[in-house]
Design a protein around this nucleic acid. Structure first.
Lengths: 340, 340
DNA sequence: CTGAAAGCGCTAACAG
DNA sequence: CTGTTAGCGCTTTCAG
């Protein structure tokens, strides 16, 4: 079996308490310290984190709930989280909910049993539903801090980090307006979702500021953020002959570009397209995609830092941070040049 | 504070042992059971997994070491792992090594302290280096099983799952040969890496079987698997005017397609390109990419299952599994039609 | 500075 | 079937 603190104590000829002190960097006579260190090295002793946390009450593990592990969107967020946690000596227990309702609640309970020191929820969608809401409320206290990264909930009693979706919608539309476009279509993602609403508001404001009329037919809702979601509504949008399109994800933007090209439209000459997210493949597409860049890695990093600080008690207050976005202009947008 | 087993026992008017029995599904008189269950519900009691593992020696957590969390390649593997672990009631502690040497060793030690029940290493590259190698040997025993998913090491004393890279190289070349190509270039990834060697051997065998000559100049090494790696050597390859190219990743294939188009070559009419991996964007590219599909999700699932079975003692032996690959023909390959 | 002792929350014999 | 009694490995008073 692996050596325990008793083994080390015996070998070094001291008590368990002294070994514990050495391990935890508490002052000990030099001679003793050396003997303990030697014993530790000889035995290859490693403290049992399980036992440590049983007494200390801290596990140095936080739970992370993400809708998916396989995604160009969540990947950077998770990297930001892990990198930050690592810097603070935390590890993460990751659970993918597979976008499935109910899993969030199940996993939260499970992580609670594991006595994680905190919970980080990435883009939870069911925060407003009773069970999850209740769970968050009953755990959001001292003993089990929760931080939401880019989630639905903007309740004042839960810490979180958000991205400025309103700004994103505005910037996307503004960019196209500045290029001289007038009939600017919008392909929305999930109907009713908070981020979608905000982006749409930003888009509307930009249109309004420019004195451009808005037509309901120029706004379609895909029902999701993947290319296949876009495919089902793209024709309805293109039938309206827009000059340009704002899509609420890079995947949706791709579906627009793809279908437009099939219909004989050249991008950007006949149609400009703006995406959203700036995931890895946005710059690989041809033409490369103009898009609203979300600071995903930073989103994860800030959320993780917030959680750690709450756990340590350094910043116990509930805080909410909004991160700005920026537009990255690439080849998929250009001044209007309607089809002959 | 959160209620403990003692609180429940007191409230139900029984001993801690009885509560424990109820929680663990051991037979208990019906009346007692009901009282305990009631107390648990009223108190909102959840067993402390930390304490449980201290006695049982099992944490129901496995460590997963991955080079990256943000990747179209590792994503599916991780999903496969998580899904399988979930089915066996395990959780995973994920550590991203950021492709950095040394991190693997650091994290392994850390996970060991956390007393994870096992370790799953995804595509470790430094297995042959002394520290990691030593770590694996000292832990690969009963108490700390290790399974490697698609790693460098093929040592007989460590369980692992691999993908048939030789077959992949063969299939890619064979596909092009069947289309009538003769000057088939190869863009390799990391020089000296096991998978690269195997794929190259497969490619060579296919060429040989077809009686085609091989030229050294038609084989270049990018030094990595990302598009930017390919960019530095793609011109040298295209200067040789190949009919077709086998690239060792979809990213590399993309760099070939991209550069070829810039040089005025039409794909697939003037140049056929085969990728490797079949990551998500392979089918989004235009032309869509013919590629060797790796069963990534399955790779993760099989590795996870192997680890769980080793932990439970159901399959304590060291086993190694090789998964087949298959070629997915898309639009980037077609019969040869050299440039006029 | 250091050892003895108590206890974190739970499980596992061992008697009843 | 159930309560009592020991620990699991470590930290933490509290004396010495």
């Amino acid at each position: 079996m692996m050596p325990t603190i008793s083994d080390v104590a015996k070998r070094a000829g001291v008590s368990k308490a002294t070994v514990s002190r050495v391990v935890n960097g508490i002052s000990v006579r030099d001679a003793s310290r050396r003997r303990v260190l030697d014993a530790i090295a000889e035995l290859g002793y490693r403290p049992n984190a399980q036992a440590q946390s049983l007494t200390s009450g801290r596990t140095w593990v936080v739970g992370v709930l993400t809708p998916s592990l396989d995604s160009t969107f969540y990947g950077p967020i998770l990297e930001g989280i892990q990198e930050t946690l690592m810097a603070y000596d935390y590890n993460m227990m990751v659970c993918s909910t597979y976008h499935r309702r109910g899993n969030e609640y199940t996993f939260s309970k499970l992580l609670w049993e594991k006595r994680v020191d905190g919970l980080l929820m990435v883009t939870p969608r069911e925060l407003t539903e009773p069970p999850v809401r209740a769970l968050l409320l009953e755990t959001a206290g001292e003993r089990f801090p929760v931080v939401v990264a880019d989630g639905e909930l903007a309740a004042a009693d839960i810490s979180g980090v958000w991205v400025d979706n309103y700004l994103g919608g505005y910037l996307a539309a503004q960019h196209l307006i500045e290029l001289g476009h007038r009939r600017i279509g919008l392909m929305a993602g999930i109907p009713g979702a908070r981020e979608a609403q905000q982006r749409q508001l930003g888009y509307s404001k930009a249109m309004q500021d420019a004195g451009l009329p808005m037509e309901a037919a120029l706004q379609v809702t895909a029902g999701g953020y993947l290319p296949e979601h876009g495919r089902s509504v793209v024709d309805a949008l293109l039938d309206q002959e827009p000059d340009a399109v704002v899509a609420m994800s890079d995947g949706l933007a791709w579906s627009v570009m793809q279908r437009a090209q099939e219909r004989g439209l050249h991008i950007p000459d006949h149609l400009s397209v703006v995406g959203y997210d700036d995931v890895a493949f946005a710059q690989l597409l041809r033409p490369s995609l103009t898009t609203v860049q979300q600071p995903l890695r930073q989103l994860g990093a800030v959320a993780a830092r917030k959680l750690v600080k709450t756990i340590s008690g350094e910043e116990p207050q509930v805080t909410q941070t909004t991160l700005p976005v920026q537009l990255v202009a690439r080849q998929s947008t250009a001044p209007s040049r309607r089809r002959p």
